[in-house]
Structure formats: C-alpha cells, structure tokens
Design a protein around this nucleic acid. Structure first.
Lengths: 182, 182
DNA sequence: ACACTCATGTAAGCTGTTACATGATTAA
DNA sequence: TTAATCATGTAACAGCTTACATGAGTGT
C-alpha cells in the first residue's frame, strides 16, 4: 500500500474531488476550520499527497510560479474517484471521533445526496444511543453493589456536559435531515 | 523521563487521586464513558502505569486474588500529587481537542473549586471566540476576490454544525458557572 | 535588518492502537 | 466445549506532530 495515512488520505481525496488544489491550498483551507477538525501539518500532508500520486489516485500539474515558488496542483484521477466512492460507501466506524463525522460533512459537496442523508441518519442513531446511555447513567448510578469506581463530582459534570452536547447535536441532525428532504 | 505518554499520564494520575484503582478498574470506568473520551487500550494504559511507578508518582499494593488473577492497586504518592497539581495549574493548550476538556472535567473531584471555575471560564473564552469566528465565516464568505477554495455545500453544513455545538456548549458553560457560584 | 507569507519538503520522535500471549474462572 | 469476564502484559506499527531545511518575495 505504499505507505501513507488512512484517514487523512481519503479526506484529502475528497477535498480534491471538490476542486483541484495544491498542498498549501489545502492547509489554508483547513486552517480556517481549525477548531472543528484541526489542520494537518506539512509532515503529514505532503507525504500523503505523494503517496496518492504514487498510487495513481491523483495527478499533478506543476505551475511554475512566476515570482513565486512553483505550485503543484493535484487533481483527482479516475482511480481516485473509485477509491473515494468505495470509502464513502462504507459507514463510519461506530466509535469514530467527532472529527471523522465533520470530515464527512465537509465532503458533502462531492456526495450524492442519498449518501449524505444516510450518513446523517447513521450519526443520529449513534448519538441517540449515546444520549440514552448517558441519561441512564445520570438517573440511577447510586446505591447498587458498589456500582463503580471513581464516582467523583467530576463524573456527574462530564455526564451532564455530554448529555447537553448530544441533545444539541440530535436537534441539529433532526432539523438538518428535515431540511434536506425538500 | 523514563518513556511514557503525556496526556494519559496525567489523566491516570488524576483518576488515582480520586480513588486507588487497578489498571483494569480504570479501563472499566472509562469504558462507561467511552463516547466522550474513548477508553485507552491495554497497550497504552499498562505501560503508563509502570512508568508512573518507576517515577515514584504512584505506589502499588498487590492483592493476590483468591480465585482470581492478582490485582495491582495503584495509589497516588506524594510526588504524584505534586506533579498533578503542577499539571492542573497550567491552562489547557489553546487548540486542545474536546477530549482534553472532558478529561479535566472528570478530574473535577480532585480539584479546588477555584481551579475548576478557572478552567470552565477559560473554555468559555475559547468557545466564544470559536463561535464568533464561525458566525463571521457564515455571514460573508461570498463574493470577494475568489475568497477561497473548496467552498462546497459541505463547508456550509460543517459551519452550521459547529455553530450549533458551540452555542450549546456556551449555554452549558454559562449555566454551570452560574450554578457553581452558589 | 527583521520578520512574515508563500511553498515545498525531510527526520525524528511521541502517542497511541491492533493484535497477540497468558492464564484462571464462570456461564451457554 | 465454546465463549466470555477478569487481569496483566508485549511487539509491531500507524498516524500524527515538532522542528528543521530551503528559498524567493514582500512588507516595516
């Protein structure tokens, strides 16, 4: 598999699907949404681009910058489109970090709407399950056989926090899904 | 520094501050809040415990389980308390992932309330800044000099998502901070 | 003179995971 | 007898970051 990352690999592929870009362009774009997903460092990004090139998933066009360092504009190749589709077809791994979901959201532009809806619905199921679990945990944790360890006040705080976020996310998912069926 | 992680290291230290536990206990406890922070694998947890022991930050008591494998109960040592305090004193790194904040939340039980409040306030500042940035981005991105790359519909979705979560988190922070001043 | 943006890249290291190995006890 | 829970651990590697290196142009 020629060495290279896995997550970032497909995410970059997805970005290139929306528009051909250089490595530097990608970094600038991602820096603008730094808080959500964090932008990759050169140390991870450039190797990924080279790996994608070596695997024939993208093509380059070198634009010799007049007065500027030359730019390497990467574009999605046929095989890249294939690989990307394969990837977006499979559902997100259950315990995927938030980051993964936001990434998929960002790729929405290069996704058939049915697939986007499917992803959102999948997320809804997972968040709902999580919310339910947190509610149960908050409700009746006390008493039992010594139900558990380290039940500091922090645990309650964290559960409350998680519950709030999960509820907000669910509301957004419902609202967005409804909006998308128009 | 005897090899070992950095994040997990202090988090484990914080858990042990609330209550002596074995490695397995820690895993079980964290698995119950898997969604929020994900629980560490044996491959990271056990080496951390050994490193903490080697550095004299914790002590062990081996309880030879009758009928069970022996348990190693780790407790915070004096030097460990020191190290932990040092760590909790310094503010979270600006771009810290959500995970980091929730971890600190979980350690609230072994924190003086002033420090907890400080952490929450710091977080409030950061989330507020983030929220503001997202609002600006959503408001006037169109038009300019070709303001930017890959502005797919996905970007808008992700921004909206982020804005919703940030707003919910801010509300929670305000509410919680208010509650804590009683 | 200094520093910053543009633009690419390499080397070394940290943090963590996956997958395996061990071994005893209990439930299907 | 097959699997799951309890309990600890190791080896290999994936994925990323930090810090460096290069080099031109632009602004103060």
């Amino acid at each position: 598999m020629a060495k290279g990352t896995v997550n970032l690999r497909y995410f970059v592929l997805g970005l290139l699907a929306q528009q051909p870009m250089s490595g530097y362009d990608i970094k600038r774009f991602l820096k603008s949404l730094d808080w959500l997903i964090g932008s990759p460092s050169s140390g991870s990004l450039y190797p990924v681009l080279r790996a994608l090139l070596q695997d024939g998933l993208v093509t380059v066009e070198v634009i010799p910058g007049i007065d500027r360092p030359p730019k390497k504009i990467y574009s999605l190749a046929g095989a890249g489109r294939q690989a990307l589709d394969n990837w977006t077809d499979q559902p997100a791994v259950p315990g995927a970090p938030l980051k993964g979901f936001v990434m998929r959201l960002l790729l929405a532009g290069s996704l058939p709407h049915t697939r986007l809806v499917a992803h959102l619905e999948q997320r809804r199921v997972q968040v709902a399950a999580h919310q339910k679990a947190l509610k149960q945990a908050s409700a009746g944790p006390d008493g039992a056989t010594g139900s558990d360890a380290a039940a500091g006040s922090g645990q309650h705080l964290a559960q409350d926090y998680g519950l709030t976020l999960a509820t907000a996310e669910l509301a957004w998912l419902n609202h967005t899904l409804e909006r998308l069926s128009n």
